[in-house]
């Protein structure tokens, strides 16, 4: 065991876990907030894809920072469809969510193909910030390795961590958080208290769209350095699962995203150690574990009572 987990391998494992986990972190965090507010975004994959595309194009023409902003804006713009059709007009959230995912898959592939079919441009490596001192620690430092580690990451990763902390605090300690949770658990009570249910859900969904778009932008700008059709490869759906498993706890989103990130990248890291292990197997394990836990400790799900239900004032 100890021969396998050398410093190089552990560093690669951490770096890979972060690289693959950050898009999940952003998307799952947004989805967690939206779900708490009672909105199930099956279109998360679509938000991420649009964020990845717009983020990539913006970063290609301007700079990385604007790229991330562009990605977030694009994700929020797509989530507006959800806001209008589902929150405002009360259509089925799952049907519209599937529509958003399919349409975004088609649209990004179409537009990208018509713009860059010949050139297939790539971006350079995103610049990292070395945290003074800490980045020199072996394994977690990563200041002198090519992929970095915990203390040598692009600014967006630290911004993401800050957003996680900020969101977790907001959800637990502020009126906003209380409103969001009420919108999902007992919307009529929130309405009676004089707070707009539709408004609360709208902001939660736009936040979700922006976060997912940012996650997608990270995927294309930092993780891949390019855009390709279906670049998200179902990560949006994994993020939905993570958000549901996190039960509204920001810390669990962080842990879940990192665990899945590691499982997505562990086979690469183990190749450094000369261990050849099937990517498919490793990728399967977290899901198998979750299912096993659900079966063994089968308990009721912890979803908000009004999840995916449109709110109609006065309806029973």
């Amino acid at each position: 065991m100890s021969e396998i987990f050398t410093t190089d391998v552990l560093t690669a494992l951490l770096a890979g876990g972060i690289l693959a986990g950050v898009p999940l972190l952003f998307a799952a965090l947004g989805e967690m907030v939206a779900e708490r507010a009672g909105v199930l975004n099956i279109g998360l994959e679509g938000y991420m894809l649009m964020g990845a595309y717009v983020g990539f194009v913006t970063a290609y023409h301007t700079n990385t920072f604007l790229g991330f902003l562009g990605g977030a804006a694009a994700g929020a713009a797509v989530s507006l469809i959800m806001v209008v059709l589902c929150i405002r007009l009360g259509l089925d959230q799952i049907v519209v969510g599937i529509a958003i995912t399919l349409a975004a898959e088609g649209a990004t592939a179409l537009i990208f193909d018509s713009q860059f079919a010949e050139s297939r441009p790539t971006l350079g490596a995103t610049e990292r910030i070395d945290i003074p001192g800490l980045s020199q620690i072996p394994v977690v430092g990563g200041g002198d390795t090519s992929d970095g580690s915990v203390f040598s990451q692009p600014p967006i990763v630290y911004i993401g961590l800050a957003i996680v902390v900020g969101t977790a605090w907001t959800m637990r300690r502020t009126h906003w958080g209380l409103n969001i949770r009420a919108a999902g658990d007992k919307p009529s009570a929130l309405d009676a208290a004089g707070v707009s249910v539709l408004g609360t859900r709208t902001w939660a969904t736009l936040f979700c769209g922006a976060m997912a778009g940012m996650g997608g932008a990270y995927l294309s700008i930092t993780a891949a350095g390019l855009f390709e059709d279906f670049i998200t490869q179902g990560r949006g759906f994994i993020a939905i699962v993570l958000a549901m498993l996190a039960r509204g706890k920001g810390a669990w989103v962080l842990i879940g995203a990192f665990v899945f990130g590691i499982s997505l990248s562990i086979s690469d890291a183990l190749q450094i150690a000369g261990v050849d292990i099937s990517t498919d197997l490793v990728f399967m394990l977290p899901f198998v574990t979750v299912i096993a836990v659900l079966v063994v400790f089968g308990r009721r799900s912890y979803l908000p009572a009004a999840l995916a239900l449109p709110y109609v004032r006065g309806a029973r």
Binding site: V96, A99, I100, L102, A103, A104, E105, G106, L110, D229
Partner: peptide, 24 residues
């Protein structure tokens, strides 16, 4: 037409969205 062959996905997605609009 020289476009990506993922056009079908966009079309099906649009059908779903317009289903919503027709519904309204």
């Amino acid at each position: 037409a020289g476009v990506s062959n993922e056009f079908t996905l966009l079309l099906v997605g649009l059908v779903l969205l317009f289903m919503g609009v027709t519904e309204l």
